[in-house]
């Protein structure tokens, strides 16, 4: 942990959001399309082993954007496949992403129990 990681976290994370905002404003693509596309991109980058170097450089700047979700899905599937063969693609799929998905489901459910939309 050093200050450079923080600098790159800000620059890389901000930069990704900067580009995404330009895509949203300059095309008719909606957020749903964009986020889906980013996840697919993450999966491909993960398959090619290209996203991890960015995580090493920028830390949170690379792990927070949704691209990281696609990357983690792919990495989980690949790692397990290397250990146990083709079936590993199925068993390893959510290996690395279960924290995010589980947390999102639990928090959503709890929030729905205690509050309602403000409008």
């Amino acid at each position: 942990m050093d200050w450079q990681t923080y600098l790159f976290a800000f620059l890389v994370g901000g930069g990704i959001c900067f580009l995404c905002q330009l895509i949203l404003d300059l095309t008719k693509l909606t957020l749903g399309y964009l986020l889906t596309g980013l996840t697919v991109l993450g999966g491909i980058l993960g398959g090619l082993g290209l996203y991890d170097p960015l995580i090493k450089l920028a830390g949170g700047g690379a792990t927070m954007p949704i691209i990281s979700f696609g990357n983690s899905l792919a990495k989980g599937a690949i790692a397990e496949a290397e250990k146990t063969g083709v079936l590993g693609v199925l068993t390893g799929m959510f290996e690395l992403t279960s924290t995010g998905i589980t947390a999102a489901i639990i928090f959503s459910f709890l929030m729905a129990l205690v509050t309602r939309p403000k409008g």
């Binding site: 949203l24 909606t30 957020l31 939309p117 403000k118 409008g119």
Partner: peptide, 16 residues
């Protein structure tokens, strides 16, 4: 809120 939810997104959705 009812129209947004039916035609577009949930009211608390953060799309611009």
């Amino acid at each position: 809120a009812t129209a947004e939810r039916q035609y577009r997104y949930p009211t608390e959705y953060g799309g611009q």
